[in-house]
Amino acid sequence: MKIIAFNEIIDLNHRLEEKELHFKIHLQDACGRQTMWIEPLGNCACEGKYGDLYSEIDQFFKENRYEIKYSQDKMSFWIIN
């Protein structure tokens, strides 16, 4: 199983900040699987930006050779093998 390091989440959050995407990614480790969840940092600042957010998340994990899957509401995601 692939493991995400806290530093990788920190790097992703810096990348989102640089792109002026007002979201924060959190890492949670539970029951043998890490889950990441998305925190919008204000309703107005995030409206219309979700497409850009998902593109950045997808690109970040692709660059780091991880494949991810989103939950049904796309507010959390995890690494798949």
Rank of each mutant, 00 (worst) to 15 (best):
Q34N: 14
L16W: 12
E56N: 06
H22E: 04
C44G: 01
K24F: 09
E56C: 08
N43M: 10
L41P: 02
E20G: 00
S55H: 12
H26P: 02
E8D: 13
N81L: 10
R15N: 10
A30Y: 10
Y66V: 07
N64S: 08
Q72W: 12
A5D: 15
Q28F: 15
N81E: 13
C31E: 12
N81F: 11
E39N: 02
I68E: 09
F6K: 14
L27T: 05
L41V: 09
L53W: 02
Y54S: 01
L41Q: 14
N64H: 15
G32I: 02
F61N: 01
A45P: 00
L21W: 03
F60C: 03
G48C: 11
D73F: 01
I80M: 04
I79C: 11
I79Y: 05
M1V: 02
E63K: 11
H26F: 14
S71N: 13
Q28I: 15
K19G: 00
M75G: 03
I68D: 09
N64E: 12
D58W: 13
H22F: 11
Q72H: 05
Y54Q: 07
F77W: 09
N7K: 15
F23T: 00
F60H: 05
R33A: 04
I25R: 00
E63G: 01
N43C: 08
